[in-house]
Design a protein around this nucleic acid. Structure first.
Lengths: 184, 184
DNA sequence: TTCGTCATGTAATGGGTTACATGATTAC
DNA sequence: GTAATCATGTAACCCATTACATGACGAA
């Protein structure tokens, strides 16, 4: 799951394993999950669906049930290959930390992800963020007081906020790991 | 400052107004400011410097002072046109909110930005984040309790964290606005 | 009748990432 | 002697954004 195409494919497979949907509806679901910011545009979505069709991960079928004489919808459903691909990803564990975007995508489909991998994903991300926090801290102490007010006052404030933000996510991750540890 | 090329140009002009630097050193400064994540690659930096040369915003001069017989460095300095361009940007106010990336770039050069614009930039960003927070809140209450545990438990946790993160930045922005209001 | 939404696409442009290419120096 | 850093670039690939294109429906 390195490229964006791959993570989009994963998200689409995840949505379609819950039931067949057409392109327009898939976009709405994506926005409902990930927010209007980073909205998925049609010119990315439709070509992606076509690629997945060719790869045999999904099947299409035309339906006219959209209304009296609305434009016919093209409904997509996962094939067994598509389901297999999705399960491969959710069931494969890796020691590399996911970046912001990929973590968000994977976390949204934690439901169908086995608990062992859920914890691994959370912990890998945690390690990465702890690193990032210490980098910010050392940057802050490196030029603490040594540079004049003008430029670095704001740099310092920004780092303070960045560090706070990272520490908040660390706390949240620990909370999530804790919940996973206790439940089923 | 819509495209990344423009925001990179702004950051480079900002660094060079503090004194002439060569490409390799510019990259190190960028990393020092913005962190190793989102590191600026040479294949973006050097062509950008060439474009700015052609546009007459910077001048180059070769220096061999890098060591005994190191590869000669190409040192860049801002021209009066470059300085003018930088001042135009810092002194122009706009009512549109900057996105995450552009805000970070602009904030790092708040020093040479007049106070009125500093406040405007902070407040525009604040408005945008307040909007985002309310979007997340309505998404959370929209499907609160109505969907079964499986999928939406994690979605809810993620939104809780996203909201917290946005609220933290809002608080920080208010703090920054407050500081600006009091000082000079 | 005009705007927003439904619904599916193509084309052009801009630009970021990665790999490739070179070569000297310093530290271990 | 081997890796890392210094130092500057080019080329190919991938891909995201934007604009373009079409057409029907429902609401104000």
């Amino acid at each position: 799951m390195r490229s964006r195409a791959e993570s989009l494919e994963f998200a689409l497979l995840g949505l379609l394993t819950q039931g067949p949907l057409h392109g327009y509806e898939l976009r709405k679901r994506m926005i409902a999950i990930y927010g209007p910011f980073r909205a998925l545009s049609f010119s990315v979505l439709y070509p992606q669906l076509h690629r997945m069709l060719e790869a045999g991960l999904i099947e299409e079928s035309v339906s006219d049930t959209g209304g009296i004489s609305r434009r016919s919808r093209i409904v997509y459903a996962v094939t067994t290959d598509g389901k297999k691909r999705f399960d491969e990803i959710t069931h494969t564990s890796s020691s590399e930390a996911l970046d912001d975007e990929n973590f968000e995508v994977r976390f949204a489909f934690f439901g169908p992800t086995p608990r062992g991998n859920r914890i691994a994903i959370l912990e890998n991300r945690l390690v990465k963020l702890v690193e990032r926090a210490s980098l910010i801290r050392s940057a802050m102490s490196a030029n603490a007081g040594q540079l004049p007010d003008g430029i670095d006052k704001y740099l310092h404030e920004w780092r303070r906020h960045s560090l706070d933000s990272v520490e908040r996510e660390i706390a949240w991750l620990e909370e999530m790991i804790n919940i996973e540890g206790k439940s089923s």
